[in-house]
């Protein structure tokens, strides 16, 4: 039996939203090469919603599938909604992940949270500068 679900294989073989965004509103980087997986997420925000999101990932099949899935889940959602994403939620949408892969590869939600935090920090700085 293959170790990955059909859903994981689909997102690994045909990943959605791979790439970078020029002048992104927020960037989130997680992971390190010692653990094996690294993800960089780029977001564009419009009316407090994820208008566009792209990713680049160095890692195994699960890491790539998680990245792809979480971008699909996030598009069009409000930032607060995305901040509620959990690794469990992403894994569930993928039809489950092998136990061993759950912690190391399931960093998509965390990467998005970082990108949103980066966007919010930048926004705060701008507001502070203009007052």
């Amino acid at each position: 039996m293959p170790i990955y679900s059909d859903k994981v294989m689909d997102h690994f073989m045909n990943p959605r939203n791979v790439g970078e965004i020029e002048n992104p509103d927020g960037i989130g980087e997680v992971g390190n090469p010692i653990c094996g997986d690294m993800m960089t997420f780029y977001i564009k925000v419009k009316d407090d919603r994820i208008d566009d999101v792209k990713f680049k990932t160095f890692g195994c099949g699960a890491a790539i599938a998680v990245s792809s899935m979480v971008t699909e889940m996030a598009k069009g959602k409000t930032l607060d909604e995305v901040m509620k994403f959990t690794p469990e939620l992403v894994a569930g949408e993928l039809g489950g992940l092998p136990k061993a892969k759950f912690h190391c590869s399931n960093l998509g939600a965390q990467a998005l949270h970082k990108a949103i935090k980066n966007y919010r920090d930048k926004k705060k700085e701008k507001e502070a500068a203009s007052t």
Binding site: V18, E20, M38, K56, T57, F58
Partner: peptide
């Protein structure tokens, strides 16, 4: 590599 942040 097109997907890899290390490569970019």
């Amino acid at each position: 590599r097109q997907m890899s942040p290390l490569y970019s």
